[in-house]
């Protein structure tokens, strides 16, 4: 076993997913099978190989730090589930 149900519950907490017991059960088996499959990467010796983060090698993309027109507060908030004036409103953070 690469992963057990407790590991899956821990990962669900990290991923901020309130999963049902049946989902946790199914994921335990599926993730175990997938992790078992990806184990094949260890057949390859990658000592000294530089990792590729991006297919096109690029240096930092710099631009001038200029103020430009943006979509504005009203449009930025048009999809907000809850708002208060120009702010997004969220449930209580600190008890």
């Amino acid at each position: 076993m690469k992963i057990n149900r407790e590991d899956v519950e821990h990962v669900a907490r990290l991923a901020r997913l309130a999963l049902q017991p049946a989902e946790l059960d199914a994921l335990t088996g599926q993730m175990d099978a997938i992790l078992d499959y990806v184990e094949k990467l260890n057949e390859l010796d990658t000592e000294g190989i530089t990792p590729t983060a991006h297919a096109v090698p690029m240096e930092n993309a710099f631009r001038e730090d200029l103020v430009k027109p943006s979509i504005g507060i009203a449009r930025a908030q048009q999809n907000a589930p809850d708002k208060d004036g120009s702010c997004f409103k969220v449930p209580k953070v600190i008890e």
Partner: peptide, 18 residues
């Protein structure tokens, strides 16, 4: 928070995310 569907059952911010 900023867009999309929200499900909030009064369990605070983290609970709302989950």
């Amino acid at each position: 928070v900023r867009y999309g569907v929200r499900v909030d059952n009064g369990e605070g911010l983290i609970g709302m995310y989950q």
